[in-house]
Write a protein that binds this DNA or RNA. Sequence first.
DNA 1: GCTGCTTTTCACAAAACTGTCATAATCATA
DNA 2: TATGATTATGACAGTTTTGTGAAAAGCAGC
Lengths: 222, 222
Amino acid sequence: MIKILIADDEEKIREVVREYAEFEGFAVTEACDGMEAVEKARAESFDVIVLDIMMPRLDGFSACKEIKKYSDAPVIMLSARSEEYDKLFGFELGIDDYVTKPFSPKELIARIRVAVKRSSAALAEADVFRYNGLEINFTAREVCINGKKVSMTPKEYDLLFYLVRNANIALSREKLLEEVWGYDFYGDDRTVDTHIKMLRNSLGEFRDHIVTLRGMGYKFEK
Amino acid sequence: MIKILIADDEEKIREVVREYAEFEGFAVTEACDGMEAVEKARAESFDVIVLDIMMPRLDGFSACKEIKKYSDAPVIMLSARSEEYDKLFGFELGIDDYVTKPFSPKELIARIRVAVKRSSAALAEADVFRYNGLEINFTAREVCINGKKVSMTPKEYDLLFYLVRNANIALSREKLLEEVWGYDFYGDDRTVDTHIKMLRNSLGEFRDHIVTLRGMGYKFEK
DNA sequence: GCTGCTTTTCACAAAACTGTCATAATCATA
DNA sequence: TATGATTATGACAGTTTTGTGAAAAGCAGC
């Protein structure tokens, strides 16, 4: 669910935005002035923060500056028509968008959506390990060999992911059991061997990247 | 050319608006009451529709509700000053703006221009995910398969939207419960499974895009 | 309070996975 | 190369996890 913080000293505006946004399925938190906005943004994380420029106690720009110190949430400013000149000034504060009063809630919602999408797109770089034709996508929990998806059992994924994350590091069976199976696993050391076997089969031509360290354990070799 | 529909039972108002608007180069159509407005809006498409709230036969809100069923045109309401309270009520009907009587035609024209600008901007960035015959419109909260609208329960929409917004990302049941159901949901993990089942049924031929990640959770695969 | 729809829980069957073990293969070294 | 130690492999029984239908619980509109 998208969480937004709306800061404006006019109650009517907050109310209208809240009503519309909740109707759209957002979770809305209100603040009456800049100071309150800063506090609430510190206490809780939001997906988007909407700040009026003219507010008592602390104006929108100062609030934005303060909030940006500890939050990556995109900020949308609300400005009266006469404040157009501020647009130029504000972008260096990391302000994502401006909406000019009077605005339609519909437009604000649309812009919030766009801001969220932008910021999440920036974050959503998939975590992938690539080596020749081997592709391990940690985010999607997916392994491809020469472009073809390879399906594995949960333990195979977990084991492979741990080995690859610790590539070129010697890992004892004890260490593997502890990290992949969990500290509370009381079973045979040799269990690891069996799973290594299955993993090698799944890895096909890349099977040799899992190297046996005699008398020690295994490692994944890049 | 911008086409507007102005509905008001007072002839004088229609006339003033028409004169001013035509001077601005708009094409104006008039309606004397809500019913007529609904009919004319159905027959022809407008860029903006201006509705008086108090009208015989069908009031502005009801007319708006009806018109919104088949039109995306922004609606501007005309209200007597004493009807302020209506502002809150009307927003969920998709009303874009209010102009309080008595108004200056100049102001109305300005707001019409703003509304036109907004609606074209909002349309341009309608938030839609498409994949072959699958179309998920987040803004309209609507899902189509091969052009046919698929109706779902609220939870199905919510779950699908979250999965699609996080396409190709492995999502655990806990994560899904937290994000779709809310952090305060204290229920069974398996609830997710049941909803996944229903969602898959709703998705018909696209059911396989929701893939099971054994021992982990689910993900939506593009 | 009824009614119909949605959501959650539950139980069971089916499917998939895991750990163990016996046996074969491999390795290091004397 | 013979030997003992270590690792690889195949099979399988037991366990875990998931899919599903149905029942129960919730909820909104009348």
